[in-house]
Design a binder for these strands. Sequence first.
DNA 1: CTGTTAGCGCATTCAA
DNA 2: TTGAATGCGCTAACAG
Lengths: 376, 376
Amino acid sequence: MSAGTAGRRSTLVRVAEHAGVSIASASRVVNGLPASAELAARVRKAADELGYVPDATARSLKVGRTNQIALAVADVGNPVYVAMMHEVNRVITKAGYRLVLSSTGNDAQSQLDFLGELDRGFVDGLILSPLRMTAEVVERLRATRHPVVVIGTLPEDVAIDSVRADSPRGIALAVDHLATQGRRRIALLNGPVDTVPGAARLAGYLSAMDQQGFVANADAQIAAKDFTYRAGITATARLLERSSPDAIVCANDLLAIGALKTIRAAGMRVPDDIALVGMDDSDIAELPDPSLTSVNLGSVKRAKAAAKLLLRRLADHDAAAKRLVIEPTLTVRESSVSTRRRTAASNAEEMGPAAAPTTGGQQAADPAGDGEATTR
Amino acid sequence: MSAGTAGRRSTLVRVAEHAGVSIASASRVVNGLPASAELAARVRKAADELGYVPDATARSLKVGRTNQIALAVADVGNPVYVAMMHEVNRVITKAGYRLVLSSTGNDAQSQLDFLGELDRGFVDGLILSPLRMTAEVVERLRATRHPVVVIGTLPEDVAIDSVRADSPRGIALAVDHLATQGRRRIALLNGPVDTVPGAARLAGYLSAMDQQGFVANADAQIAAKDFTYRAGITATARLLERSSPDAIVCANDLLAIGALKTIRAAGMRVPDDIALVGMDDSDIAELPDPSLTSVNLGSVKRAKAAAKLLLRRLADHDAAAKRLVIEPTLTVRESSVSTRRRTAASNAEEMGPAAAPTTGGQQAADPAGDGEATTR
DNA sequence: CTGTTAGCGCATTCAA
DNA sequence: TTGAATGCGCTAACAG
């Protein structure tokens, strides 16, 4: 009914004409600025009759804001990135922004291309979660006129807002948990080591093993060719050819599920023969049977913090850059806790009827789910 | 180095000044329109020195195009929508468009809100995959000045481009396959019946059962409260309380994985005691053990077709509306094929050493993966 | 081939 | 409070 004459798109000028007021007044009424009740009514009526809707493009050109925020992630196929996207979208939508998605794939060039595009000003800011943080990327980030928040690790000297997971600590949670369960030959199923997460996982593993007084045998470490389920299958097969772990820490949940498949195909059981710990604690962690114990690296929290950081900077371009670190947590499920008594390996001490039921090492962790992560 | 004086943003006017040419000439060079080699060089040099980057907003205002396409899906948590999003992004990116994502959640209102926003003209077109196609949504769709393509089913009299899956046919593939495997008591684990996919699944199930000469017992049909893994768990528990199926067709892969969990918890085996068929054939279908036989409803093909349909319409606003239907396919995996001889139920005929290995009912199906789906 | 000019639709400064 | 006028940065007529 109120759609008005569909002829041409109606603009503010036409509304003004139709209402018999100046274009400036029409603009004011539409934007809720002070105006006499009578005039406001006239304008509103006219706008209604003409089915007027303000034009976003013109407005953007005028005010210098698009109300759009870009999110660039490496791999939308990974549930973690989906979760992050979801959270970023939630936060920025509430603040009146739209989400422009750039799924740059694993392609480094298209990542750079997108960063180049950024200066065209089709978005007000960017949240970037790069798989590889190359020098070129860093260079582009410094050069941009637009606010950027990085999810991941940045060189020390770069003054850009960022938020990262403490993934070494996460690995330590996993290794400690496995050690507590009596596991001694703890292997690492990693992704590519030349990626940001891959490098962090490896470093964390080495340090955690050291801490526990275990030797990190090279045969017990393997890098899958990417962070996918299939890569997990083949990499685990290779791993089992050259070593006999009683536990595997996986760099990601998809890899872990791949490992699960291979272990079974080899005639062994999880967790009795080999315990498994995934990482990311994504939606899919609870799907397999046994369900997957997983290190929660706070992907949702990171996404939320990143979004808020960007919103803050959008409001104040000159704020000092922040570097946030999100504390990991361990979600214990079935894949790491054997119900049968451990037969192999020693530790004389019983460790209680069954390890603690759920989360293990959570820190002060945004209890209400709504706390201002950026203030920590 | 080539970043130029970072002072203020450089515009075409400044480039023109710096090069000593008219602003129009500068524009032409930038846009690759004919110009003398000498002039072109001067402009390009100036642009480079000033670090000039054309402004997307101004350009959009002028030409009336944003080069953005919106995708509105109900639930980004569902792998199918992620796959669709991925594909849409791929196709439109290649055509020079950016993707604006609207994850409207299950919230009907925010869906409507987004459709309202559409007329602000921040995107050139929309691809919409609504969970529920209400009268209000249809009304908004007709009212919009912007091209829209719907993924899903639309009322007959609405002249809007759309592409849908033939999900009754998909269910039939599943039921027929199960019947061939000797299953007779085939249940349906559906999602909410008041959704577009839920309604289609139910209708398809009833008709397929009828076709096979089976009775579609009401006790053997259940509707989970949404299309999630958890809902699948609880709904299956209820289903098993009131009936004893030897096979379950699930409206979606997540539901199927939930069913798998519940069946196991009840002490039964898949596929020996109960065969399982999922739907969507999404990434997660191969994760469980046994891996999930699943009806491929062509989500990627639908997404691709929708994107192309929209691009076509963007190029020609007055083209006649098309309604495309994508043919389903069955991907047979482990969850539906028992390795042991069926003991219960009859069919005297052996059905070969083991059912056909992979896809079952594929039609003429875009062999190169690149065929023009819209021309069928 | 190149320059001049007029808007795209809107927000906003300045007068009245 | 309201109206007239300016320009955001760019492209596309139209002249020359």
